[in-house]
Amino acid sequence: MERRAFYRNPVLPWLLIGPQLLLVLVFFYWPTSQALYWAFTLEQPWGGGNSWVWLDNFIAIFRDREYWATVARSAFYAICTTGLSMAVALFLACFVDRSLKGTKLFQSVYVWPYAIAAPAAGVAFRFIFAPQSGIIGSINQIWPGIWDPSTNGVHALAMVIICHAWLGIGYNFIFFLAALQMIPRSITEAGAMDGARPVRRMFDLQLPLIAPTVFFLLIMNLISSFTDSFGLIDTMTEGGPVGSTEVMVYKIYFDGFKGLDYSGAAAQSIVLMFLVIALTFVQFKWVEKRVHYN
């Protein structure tokens, strides 16, 4: 951000940036530092403030088998939704990129899932996958009990994953299409002249060229699957049956607000924060490398 022409003013920039800084301090830095404080302290049951317990809260959650199960489940959830959503979006973007007649129409519809609130999609998919009602229910009539997300944890998790992946299609599609359209036509044409068929070009030309976008989306999707799943899970399964769809964000909410275990929830928040920061860091490193190559 090198600029030769600048304004200089002792007061004005502070007035301009002040409100934003204030909001960020109150609603970001303070809560984050509070979370750290709570994670290392424990509230006394008889009152009298928090006592410093060092890493006890972390040790407690790390010793908890159930917590590890939640972490593993969240990771599985994140990988599945990310893979599924990106695969569908890339598939669609590749065909839209051929820009045949009428493609614009398809293109604008593919963006729609971006606009849908997760809980609204959750409610809709809950009906679609409801074992007794109209759509999946007809399969259950032929083979009774083949599908029941209300008692079968695997089914419930699959249902939530499909819905989350569906919600991500629009966002991923926008980025994939933009990246594909940035590839110079001449490169594709040169490839075709050398006799590369579309599938070959896809794997040897287009995919390597859009690799930065693929990587960016990979990180964004992973982060969003770790953090945005609450609305879906709360409307679709409430973490059940028997905790089989309880992911990290849901457990934080549940332990913190239902169980009133702020220290435990704060420690869990810190773990999740580190996870998200680590993912973002990987992303930044990659961007740096890409800039370097350019």
């Binding site: 002792p10 800084l21 960020v24 809560p31 984050t32 909410y253 913190g256 928040s269 999740l272 924060m273």
Partner: peptide, 29 residues
């Protein structure tokens, strides 16, 4: 972007770090 003041980069980073952590992960505090 348009002003030259001393704490410019500090302010810049203080604001942009917030991009990293969505509201959901710091919901309790």
């Amino acid at each position: 972007v348009f002003f030259d003041f001393r704490a410019r980069m500090v302010c810049f980073w203080m604001i942009f770090i917030t991009l990293m952590l969505p509201l959901e992960v710091r919901i309790v505090p």
